[in-house]
Design a protein around this nucleic acid. Structure first.
Lengths: 204, 204
DNA sequence: CGCAAGACTGCAGTCACTGAATACATAGCT
DNA sequence: AGCTATGTATTCAGTGACTGCAGTCTTGCG
């Protein structure tokens, strides 16, 4: 969904990506072991064997290491929404894009660890909000183009915000039900979206 | 909505509350003037004439001074949702509670300043997320009691989350339209809720 | 008045984070 | 292969958020 143009991005960039991934993995693991606050940047860097300064060349803050904020293009999201089948209404199209992301994300082991870290230490939730907001803005942009409206339009804003909320609720449900198979995350999203589509009418 | 039990809480507590309020006010004002990062705790304390150590006796972090996190009871919210007229569906009842809060909040001058600070410096949004999450949980509890369900129920979670999202979008719209009178915040919320109730169906 | 509690202060220390100068490896060109 | 330009990692020095501790002063109460 991000970049399909670089089959071999060059040794230099590969090494950079490797250290970045190593830093994130160690950060998440240590965070789950001892709690995020108890983990110092120095400790993370010691395990990866890089200097603390290098850490901040990769991540703008310690928290950035915990949840990706990696090179996930937000403009791609806008295009993805626009590229959805024309017969889908805005909510369906947006939810579809999020569902696709969910399918690819559930395959990542680090992603699950990140979610568990978030669940165990809710104080980190706030830090992730920035990334969520960027995603929401990208979705709003796509919805705006699709419906020939502006990004300040109440309908556009509400739909984008609600879609992100649905994703959040769905992921929460998915985490709360570890008994179901991993592919169920998308199903949760579908269920939540169905509730929204019904106008949140009280069920029988 | 919070405490109506202490007519005169004693001189000591009044002075404490006064310094706390002074710290918050100065923090918000300086934050809007120079940006949150450029404002040092030392500068805030210098203006209020207390030691920096005292600052951290009142607020756990510098950001805590920017948005209240004051003694706003969350249990009251749960009761408020339950106490709504029985003929209202869950979404209506929840939105009604939020609308009431909105009405009282719009009267506060500091509240508006805090919102403007948030709008001008979105990186602070994340720090407020914790408070939002607590509010959402309280709403979910109320909805659960109202509908005779559990707080883990997808419908309950989705409704509470969507209501909070609606509030967020409505406040955003309100801030974007300073030309309308102050009482319009509630109207924005009504509009957003109406969109949700329609299942976010694409408008003509 | 005298005493206990609590709010405030100063100090020392840790750690997140930044800018600048530098060493080093890689990429691209000849 | 050799040379150069570019980007990455490192070292160093410094700022500022935040904490624990020990001690002072004010307030509340008997």
């Amino acid at each position: 969904m991000t970049a399909r143009d670089t089959p071999t991005p060059g040794l230099r960039e590969r090494k950079k990506a490797a250290t970045r991934a190593a830093l994130r993995e160690v950060a998440v693991r240590l965070g789950r072991e001892h709690g995020p606050d108890a983990v110092t940047v120095e400790a993370i860097c010691a395990e990866v064997d890089v200097s603390p300064r290098t850490f901040f060349n990769h991540f703008t803050s310690k928290d950035d290491a915990f949840f990706g904020a990696g090179p996930e293009g937000t403009t791609d999201l806008t295009d993805a929404v626009v590229a959805r089948p024309a017969d889908e209404d805005p909510l369906t199209a947006t939810a579809g894009v999020l569902a696709d992301i969910l399918d690819t994300a559930t395959g990542s082991g680090v992603w699950h660890q990140q979610l568990l870290l978030l669940r165990e230490h809710p104080e980190l939730l706030g830090r992730m909000h920035a990334a969520t907001k960027a995603t929401e803005a990208a979705l709003a942009e796509g919805i705006a183009r699709r419906t020939d409206r502006t990004v300040a339009d109440p309908y556009v804003l509400t739909t984008a915000a609600t879609a992100m909320t649905a994703l959040r609720v769905a992921v929460g449900l998915w985490l709360d039900h570890p008994e179901s198979p991993e592919t169920a995350a998308r199903d949760h999203l579908d269920g939540v979206v169905a509730l929204v589509r019904a106008g949140l009418a009280p069920p029988p």
